[in-house]
Amino acid sequence: MNTLTDWVREKGYQPQDLPLYYEACTHSSYANEHNNGVPDNERLEFIGDSVLQIWSADTLYHMKPVMHEGKMTTIRAQTVCEQTLARLNQQLGWYNFLRLGVGEERSGGRTRPSILADQFEACIGAIYLDLGYGAAKAVLDEYMKPLISASKPEDVTDYKTQLQEYVQTDNRKTIQYRLLEETGPSNAPTFRMGVFLDDICMGIGESSTKKRAEQKAAKEAIRKLAC
């Protein structure tokens, strides 16, 4: 297989809008290096994220035994998090179809979780737009649904939701996440995020993505609040 359309055909579907699948696999670094109107996958990522949200909500709602809203929210956040989407991308082999800029390729972009997760969402968005929700749902049912009941490793634990639930009994308290520092080159930055409870910094986390840094900050805050 050389393209995403080859993968889709192997699943028994007949893709119609072929440029859509190339767009899903085009990173902004590639588009920026080719000044010929090549679109990147960010718009399709937006669509794919929405498909994942409705699919996960519908799947969790119909699971037995019935779960309360808080548990469904936590499991959904764990299931559609960056690390999980990146792993699924690698499992499916979609990362092989990525079109990256020269610099991004050299710096390891093809294995960077944030890029893989974004591409996964974009590919789901392309499948949805070209073949409909049924085809996108079939892919997610086959590859993502088994993860919902699987045990979650630490790196996909949703500490942000846990922290929110920990303090939500006191409506006077507010939680904010703030960027404290950004270091490193633009193609491989490191973000230092802080979580503030009523303007008091309760935790700090660092990672290559803001989302992961926020999770680390929330984990530290939970540890302090539990003491």
Rank of each mutant, 00 (worst) to 15 (best):
E104S: 12
A135D: 05
G134I: 10
A117T: 02
G125N: 06
R112A: 12
L129K: 13
G125D: 03
Q119W: 06
G132T: 07
G108Y: 09
R110Y: 12
F120C: 07
Q119C: 15
T111C: 09
G125H: 05
L129R: 14
Y133A: 10
Y133E: 10
A135Y: 08
R110G: 12
Y128S: 06
I115K: 12
C123P: 02
P113D: 09
S114L: 13
P113L: 03
G134V: 11
S114K: 13
E121K: 15
Y128H: 13
R112I: 05
I124A: 00
Y128Q: 01
Q119F: 08
I127N: 00
I124H: 01
I124C: 05
R112C: 04
Y128L: 02
S107E: 14
G134M: 11
G125R: 02
L129S: 13
I127W: 03
E104V: 11
S114P: 01
A122Q: 05
L116W: 04
A117I: 00
E121R: 15
R110L: 10
F120W: 08
R112Q: 13
D130V: 06
E105T: 12
R112N: 11
Q119Y: 08
I124M: 09
Y133Q: 11
Y128N: 07
T111L: 12
G109Q: 10
S114T: 12
S107M: 12
C123F: 04
E105Y: 15
S114R: 11
A117M: 03
A122M: 03
D118A: 14
A126Y: 02
A126R: 02
R112G: 00
D118S: 15
G125V: 07
A135T: 12
A135G: 09
C123L: 06
A126P: 06
A117G: 07
